[in-house]
């Protein structure tokens, strides 16, 4: 697994916005979850530096933050790729053969489920039911659903996102 370093300088703007958001949440009961969720979506993951800011901002011990962050599967400690591919592992997708789709993705990207490619382009996130069982097996890329997947359509799907990147 590649090492990812959090660049404080590059993220200065985001950090400022995040701190402002945290300020608005301080008085709210049970603020830790919404704050962590905001950090996760803003930075794409929870860098240690950011968790330290939360500890200071909300006056919650670092150990507690770490405890909460490790409990929920949507919090991660390394960045997600630009395209986060959620693979649905629900029952309907399972009986319709999502396993082979996941294997094909892993092979094509050279990473395991739960990891990010070193160029930060793609990550694979195994997900519990996406609730789109009618079109199983399903993967979603940054929230965009792709139904009736098979191991043969995986490359095509990835290529369509690779193309997008080249164009922009």
């Amino acid at each position: 697994m590649a090492e990812f370093v959090f660049d404080l300088e590059k993220n200065a703007d985001k950090i400022q916005q995040f701190k402002a958001f945290m300020e608005t949440q301080k008085q709210r009961k049970g603020a830790l979850m919404p704050v962590l969720q905001d950090a996760q979506s803003r930075f794409g993951y929870l860098p240690k530096e950011v968790m330290e800011m939360i500890a200071e901002g909300l006056k919650v011990p670092m150990s507690e933050i770490y405890g909460v962050a490790t409990f929920y599967s949507q919090f991660t400690f390394f960045p997600k790729g630009e395209y986060d591919i959620s693979v649905c592992l629900g029952t309907a997708c399972y009986v319709k053969g999502v396993e082979s789709v996941l294997e094909a993705l892993e092979e094509e990207l050279g990473i395991k489920a739960g990891e990010t490619t070193p160029d930060l382009q793609f990550s694979i996130t195994p997900t519990r039911c996406l609730g789109a069982c009618g079109i199983a097996p399903v993967v979603s890329v940054n929230g965009e659903l792709h139904g009736h997947m098979s191991k043969d359509t995986v490359k095509e799907l990835l290529d369509s996102y690779r193309c997008k990147n080249k164009q922009s």
Binding site: K29, G30, A31, M33, Y72, S73, F75, T127
Partner: peptide, 18 residues
């Protein structure tokens, strides 16, 4: 945030409490 057990009533409350 992706924890199945939070559908259990008291676990859900713990989660809302942060």
């Amino acid at each position: 945030s992706g924890a199945f057990v939070c559908g259990e009533g008291t676990a859900l409350m713990e989660s809302i409490e942060g």
